[in-house]
């Protein structure tokens, strides 16, 4: 399986792009060149110099440090929202698909309701009610991601449940839990993984959007989306300022999308 991943172009490009970002993330826990919130108005809008490899922003803060710190919240938001979506989506989908009947109907109507709200609006509502913070943003995005995972999980369970090998296992005495966890799940998890990968990118974009609207991560905490928002005022005078976070967001989204595409190709071929 790993060999096939390495041979797949999409997967490898995506992996490389993400690798760079993960590296930034890893380093950010141990070392930041400057205090991300340290202002130095003497040095604002500096272009890249050896002292400030990515330049400084409108408050003289070092962009590289801000970007590195920002990666932490980006990854946090991404993983937790996808994590919540995946976990609950899988649980609901499995219950709905396997048990069917009334359980299926109720769960599906709940997810329909969730899906009826545009993601960002729903996130706005949740954040308004519970306040802005990184954690709340992540939770809000996670909840909006649940329906997507739930539908895929349900479809997978419905389909695999009827397969002969599940019937055979059932006739040999496997309990429903065993069937679901050991027989059905491994055979339908690939589309979920692909969705998770692509969903990560979507979550990051949504977070950027929310920060842009001022509802996500609050300043002065660095967030790539917030940086983009701040930079728009200076687009003509110091385009460099907007370029960096935009570039990184693009890298992340592209990376996850390619990784997801690659995963899908690899897992398709194998189950064929």
């Amino acid at each position: 399986m790993l060999k096939k991943c390495v041979q797949n172009k999409n997967f490898m490009i995506g992996a490389v792009l993400l690798g760079i970002l993960v590296l930034i993330l890893a380093v950010s826990f141990f070392y930041l060149p400057y205090d991300p919130n340290g202002m130095n108005t003497q040095q604002k809008f500096q272009l890249p110099t050896p002292a400030h490899p990515l330049g400084t922003d409108n408050f003289g803060r070092d962009i590289l440090s801000r970007v590195m710190k920002g990666s932490q919240s980006v990854f946090l938001v991404g993983f937790s929202s996808v994590g919540i979506g995946f976990l609950f989506g899988l649980l609901f989908g499995a219950a709905a698909g396997y048990l069917g009947g009334a359980v299926d109907e109720v769960l599906m109507r709940i997810t329909d309701a969730l899906m009826a709200f545009p993601g960002v609006i729903l996130a706005l509502v949740i954040i308004t009610v519970s306040g802005s913070s990184t954690l709340h943003t992540a939770a809000a995005l996670g909840v909006t991601a649940i329906p997507r995972f739930c539908r895929i999980a349900r479809a997978g369970f419905l389909q695999i449940k009827e397969m002969d090998y599940v019937k055979a296992a059932r006739s040999r005495g496997a309990s429903p839990l065993r069937l679901m966890a050991l027989h059905i799940l491994p055979n339908m998890v690939s589309p979920l993984l692909v969705t998770a990968s692509v969903g990560f990118a979507g979550a990051v974009l949504s977070e950027a959007g929310l920060s842009y609207l001022g509802l996500g991560i609050q300043p002065p905490e660095p967030s790539w989306g917030m940086m983009l928002f701040e930079a728009q005022a200076y687009l003509l005078s110091s385009p460099w300022y907007a370029f960096i976070p935009g570039c990184l967001i693009t890298m992340m989204v592209l990376g996850f999308n390619l990784l997801g595409d690659g995963l899908r190709d690899v897992t398709d071929a194998r189950t064929a």
Partner: peptide, 12 residues
């Protein structure tokens, strides 16, 4: 029970 389709009755 032994089922019909040897291709579908084993968990891939």
């Amino acid at each position: 029970i032994v089922l019909q389709d040897p291709y579908a009755s084993l968990n891939p």
